[in-house]
Nucleic acid binder design. Structure first.
Length: 522
RNA sequence: GCCGCAGUAGCUCAGCUGGUAGAGCAACGCAUUCGUAAUGCGUGGGUCGGGGGUUCGAGUCCCUCCUGCGGCACCA
């Protein structure tokens, strides 16, 4: 890359003029073929008839390009840098050959380039893989590639997220269930997942010729619960939630820290409802989702509307109906969205709710999918007002998506400095000398009684050392106690990110920290 | 899975053309009782990712597998 960059600088230096020409299609094909540029020739060949074919020349270099280009190479300036080199499939199709792609960045001036590179470095500091290790939240190791070992502190964070989500679902009119991990392939064949995703499913054998699959998702299981007994239209909408542990054998190259793993837990739910209820349920879901995102500190998120994929289940009429229903619903919910053509699930169109990580990569977290197909395939029905059997519609939906991914994004969003309600340790009591130990224990007990996750540091180190240690651990609050505090029954509170401290009466500090450590109200 | 790069102590990294593995931080021990981001001294710690090969001798060279990283493809 250094050599490439050197050549680029020479070309910029030469300030070669760049000219645009329009060529005849056949001439262009012949020309590119003759110089061995068979990919360019292929592009020209595939361009629709009547398309203008533009050629840019720069010295002896002749290339096909839609343009526009700079008038001359010198106009590029010197504020550029090559960043990475990687393979990319020709025309984005993995069945094609792989070409080498060189990534670079270019800015109007050196300062902007420097700022950009600095931002990249800053982002690396937030990387959840680095912070997860440093903060002792979790680890990954090759004997369980793609599965997370959650450490005590990381699991506290997980539980805080789970407890909050459970409370919101309870309030939101959901019922919670738990379904099996190992399920006979017959069910996956019936749902259509076996045909489409068999190679990504972990399987095992039992009782001779039985093949069981570790569930890659929860929906078929939820339908089994729905099918127990006789459902009435009065039961709808039935919102069935599960913190469902799923396994998917993701391609090795897709794994990424805890964001893309092979074993994960979804905040999954399926809303069984009538067609008429789709709109109301979608609106209700969007409201719940945005309220929960806001509670976790995400004000901005994108919504994408993914419509029918090339390979799919269900008739075109069913898809027309499902897409129209979802479009009406999202529009009625008054949410802006962009299209994501052809990216729907195989059984229905979906809304994708997308959050962004520290280095600007987008991650789908929430989703809402309209499904007319699975209830049919798996034989779900209910008795309507008319006394006849009807098919329910299923809305597949998740808010945080997977706990693993969402926690990864949370860590990056806060750069590890979690708000108190999510922090593994909310407050540390640190003594200045051992004379204060017994009072410090009283302080710890008071914090514990208030339900705070508190730790105590009675070590023989200097207070400066303790402050540094717990600041690096990103603990939201440090309560220092020394002679003065013992006498006044007070504490010296230092908050994460602040250089000063305030001295407060013990009960006042406990009251304040308790309030700050509670999950957000909504 | 594909292309490229990488894997040395818990972490960050050094180790020249092959000659018995090193630093800082962390950990542990002892001393220090100190008022808001590092007290001092000492000690232990490695199948150099796994396997195979070349060589008198491999962390270093070759083959192969695994894992990770960056993209691509995939993502129910």
């Amino acid at each position: 890359m250094a050599r490439l960059e050197g050549r680029m600088r020479e070309i910029v230096e030469r300030d070669e003029p760049i000219s645009r020409e329009v060529w005849d299609r056949l001439d262009a094909i012949d020309f590119f073929q003759s110089i061995g540029e068979r990919y360019k020739a292929e592009i020209v060949r595939d361009l629709p008839k009547g398309e203008t074919i533009t050629i840019y020349k720069q010295g002896a270099f002749v290339d096909l390009c839609l343009g526009p280009h700079l008038p001359s190479t010198g106009k590029l300036g010197k504020a550029f840098k090559l960043l990475k080199i990687a393979g990319a499939y020709w025309r984005g199709d993995h069945r094609n050959e792989m070409l080498q792609r060189v990534y670079g960045t270019c800015w109007a001036n050196e300062q902007q380039l420097k700022d950009y590179l600095h931002r990249l470095e800053e982002a690396e500091r937030r990387d959840h893989r680095k912070l997860g290790r440093e903060m002792g939240l979790f680890h990954l190791q090759e004997e369980a590639a793609g599965s997370v070992f959650w450490h005590p502190k990381g699991w506290v964070l997980w539980r805080a997220v789970e407890t909050y989500m459970r409370a919101r679902l309870d309030e939101g009119g959901y019922v919670e269930v738990k379904t099996p991990q190992l399920v006979d392939r017959a069910l996956w064949e019936a749902s259509g997942h076996w045909e489409k995703f068999r190679q990504n499913m972990f399987t095992t054998e039992a009782e001779g010729d039985k093949v069981l699959a570790l569930k890659p998702m929860n929906c078929p299981c939820h339908v089994q619960i729905f099918r127990q007994g006789i459902r009435s239209y009065r039961d709808l909408p039935l919102r069935m939630a599960e913190f469902g542990s799923c396994h998917r054998n993701e391609p090795s190259g897709a794994l990424h820290g805890i964001m893309r793993v092979r074993a994960f837990t979804q905040d999954d739910a399926h809303i069984f409802c009538t067609e008429d209820q789709i709109e109301g349920e979608t609106r209700r879901f969007c409201d719940l989702l945005s309220s929960i995102y806001a509670a976790f500190g995400f004000k901005d998120f994108a919504i994408k509307f993914a419509d029918r994929p090339p390979v799919r289940a269900g008739s075109d009429e069913t898809w027309d109906k499902a897409e129209a229903a979802l479009r009406r619903a999202i529009e009625a919910a008054g949410r802006a969205y962009v299209m994501n053509p052809g990216e729907g699930a195989f059984y229905g169109p979906k809304l994708e709710f997308v959050l962004r990580d520290a280095i600007g990569r987008d991650w789908q977290c929430g989703t809402l999918q309209v499904d007319f197909v699975l209830p049919e395939r798996l034989g779900a029905n209910y008795v309507g007002e008319d006394g006849q059997k009807h098919r329910p519609v299923m809305l597949h939906r998740a808010i945080i998506g997977s706990f693993e991914r969402f926690i990864g994004i949370l860590i990056e969003n806060y750069a590890g400095a979690m708000p108190s309600w999510l922090a593994p340790v909310q407050v540390v009591v640190a003594t200045i000398t051992n004379d204060s130990d017994s009072y410090a224990r009283e302080v710890l007990a008071a914090l514990g009684e208030a339900g705070l996750r508190a730790e105590i540091d009675l070590g023989a180190d200097k207070i400066g050392y303790k402050v540094r240690e717990h600041s690096l651990a990103k603990v939201p609050a440090i309560l220092a106690v020394g002679k003065k505090e013992v006498e006044a029954r007070s504490v010296a509170l230092r908050r994460f990110g602040s250089n000063g401290q305030e001295v407060l009466a013990l009960d006042e500090a406990v009251r304040m920290l308790k309030a700050e450590g509670a999950p957000p109200k909504h």
